[in-house]
Design a protein around this nucleic acid. Structure first.
Length: 584
DNA sequence: ATAGGGTTAG
């Protein structure tokens, strides 16, 4: 039987697709040589390996394991190669087994092996382990520094990566272009280190690495993430060669900066030139098509996807479903889904979402009932339940929704998270069972946030419940002291109940608290007919108004450039950063 | 024989 359910999924895929159909042998090899249980292997193997199969790496690892099982002592070269494969397949468990082996045979002082170990741990996200290996190295070289710096960057610790880079500069070991790639990608992680990127760019120019495509690609990514598309374009145009990866980075950059049209243009150009496009780029371009709701272009990309065989990539399939769904073409979305040769939880949830969002909530629920409950085709997770509960809410199936919530725990062993609780509270409240809703809000293991209280308050208004409405509104006065909304809704509730005295008192309170009926809206700075800052004012942000004022003042003084925020509207916490970043 | 570019779908 090939599908031993404990197998790491990439191994299963490897075996399924490999001429070496030797699951039984591999099974035996794995359990004989390593101390982990089969279940652990399975649990630690990210599902994506089914998708991005690393055939060569898997084969190399399998033969490494086999040699090991025959009692052959691995050479340091073999160990390096094996660790490299672990890094590529993110097999941290095998990686630490190999680490144990290294310690056992006393190769733990070898710089090559240690650099590989740092890399393998970092690629698997085990940054603490990577760091401890790194710290154990007595004499570092450029490679060991680079491994650690890149590892930190890739694990969302850009600030730490830059600190380490700084430490490296204080030694006699010099960074090379590899090191700069790692350091530059560290600058995109945290806003507080954004300006370091430009400094590193200057280094790169001085040291003459600017013609290195890897460095350029990391710079494109960096500038794209801080919204400096003009610099991105300059960098891209300065490239003599059209490296497909640079083109892919560029398509992603356009797409993430809401310049979908440019992204599509570049895609067309590449397609006509028969240049290869990565699957990352294809998902980006589909994202752009969805955002622009351009179905025709989306279909053209779909045709290309079919032509190059990327329909087998689950990310591309997901992006296709999402694109068709955003373009309002639910039937094509379903068609893509039905034809997908591999379906995971995310795809199932995608189609259910697509149905629910196109106003076909009932169909979405039928789909769910049929596939999940009846046929047990997939096991739903938290996100899936959020979609289902939201669909119930939209279609007024309140009791059914409450039933699904119960099922989560009883049938699927899922502990509800705050999102699902929010849905449940909404279901009760919309049903008119405000008491029950409030009880859930108080008893759940999370603290209710402003969104939950706001929605609850609206239901209180709906049912004219003065007592609970007042409670919810006062809660919101604390949570969102600058927002006029809860005052206005409560005023409505009072007025509806004919409590005119309370209305007057409330108006006074609003005035005393300095809350005005203004909408936060957008802040922007206009320089030379160009709008340079978009900031969605969040009225719940305590300093929202002050910051608006500051921004306006700044716009009057001078600003060479201010960031245009990519993709998502900035969150409240971004204000400070905008203030800072606009000063540079 | 060791290190490098994006991290994409609900």
């Amino acid at each position: 039987m090939l599908h031993n359910n404990w197998f790491p999924s990439y191994m299963t895929a490897y075996i399924r697709d490999s001429p070496l159909r030797r699951a039984g042998t591999l099974n035996a090899i794995l359990s004989r040589c390593f101390s982990f249980t089969p279940r652990e292997v399975f649990d630690r193997s990210p599902e994506r390996h089914v998708v991005t199969m690393h055939d060569n790496e898997c084969e190399a690892l399998a033969s490494f394991v086999q040699r090991n099982s025959l009692g052959m002592k691995p050479s340091k070269f073999q160990l390096c190669t094996a660790l490299n494969c672990c890094a590529k397949t993110q097999n941290s468990h095998l990686g630490s087994q190999i680490h144990a082996k290294i310690l056992h045979i006393g190769l733990d002082q070898n710089l090559y092996i240690n650099s590989s170990l740092v890399n393998a741990y970092a690629k698997c996200g085990a940054i603490v382990d990577a760091m401890s290996v790194f710290n154990g190295i007595e004499f570092h070289d450029t490679v060991s520094w680079t491994s650690m710096i890149s590892g930190l960057s890739q694990n969302g610790q850009g600030r730490e990566a830059l600190c380490l880079f700084k430490q490296m500069l204080a030694t006699l070991v010099r960074p090379n272009c590899f090191t700069y790639v790692g350091a530059i990608s560290g600058c995109t992680e945290q806003e507080s280190v954004w300006k370091c990127g430009e400094l590193l760019h200057a280094h790169v120019i001085i040291l003459g690495h600017e013609n290195n495509n890897f460095v350029t690609s990391s710079l494109i990514d960096y500038y794209s993430k801080c919204g400096k598309m003009e610099k991105v374009v300059v960098l891209f145009e300065a490239c003599a060669t059209s490296d497909p990866i640079l083109v892919n980075s560029m398509i992603s950059a356009y797409s993430h900066n809401l310049q979908g049209e440019e992204a599509i243009k570049l895609f067309m150009k590449m397609r006509n030139a028969d240049a290869s496009l990565s699957e990352h780029a294809l998902t980006s371009i589909l994202d752009a098509c969805g955002a622009l709701t351009v179905l025709q272009q989306g279909r053209q990309v779909h045709a290309y996807v079919t032509k190059v065989g990327s329909v087998h990539n689950v990310f591309v399939v997901g992006a296709l479903i999402d694109m068709y769904s955003k373009c309002g073409n639910i039937d094509e979305a379903l068609c893509v889904f039905n034809e997908a040769d591999y379906k995971n939880n995310i795809l199932w949830t995608s189609v259910i979402t697509a149905c629910a969002q196109s106003g076909r909530s009932l169909e979405a629920l039928e789909f769910f009932d049929h596939l999940v409950i009846k046929e047990k085709r997939f096991s739903p997770d938290h996100v899936c339940f959020t979609v289902v509960l939201t669909a119930c809410n939209h279609s007024g199936l309140l009791d059914k929704g409450i039933g699904y919530f119960e099922k989560m725990r009883s049938d699927y062993n899922l502990v509800p998270e705050i999102d699902q609780y929010a849905c449940l509270i909404d279901l009760y409240a919309r049903k008119g069972d405000l008491k029950r809703g409030k009880k859930v809000m108080e008893e759940m293991p999370f603290t209710a946030n402003a969104v939950m209280w706001s929605s609850f308050l609206s239901c209180c208004k709906e049912y004219g419940n003065v007592e609970l409405g007042k409670e919810a509104a006062y809660k919101l006065f604390e949570l969102e002291p600058h927002s006029p909304v809860p005052y206005l809704i409560l005023e409505d509730i009072y007025a509806g109940a004919g409590l005119w005295n309370e209305v007057l008192q409330l108006r006074k309170l609003m005035n005393d608290n300095g809350v005005r009926k203004c909408t936060a809206g957008c802040s922007w700075v206009e320089i030379e007919n160009e709008v340079h800052v978009f900031s969605v004012g969040d009225s719940s942000h305590p300093e929202s108004e002050d910051i608006h004022l500051e921004l306006r003042k700044l716009s009057l003084e001078m600003l060479n450039e201010v960031h245009v925020f990519p993709r998502n509207a900035p969150k409240s916490g971004d204000y400070e950063l905008m203030m800072i970043s606009s000063l540079f």
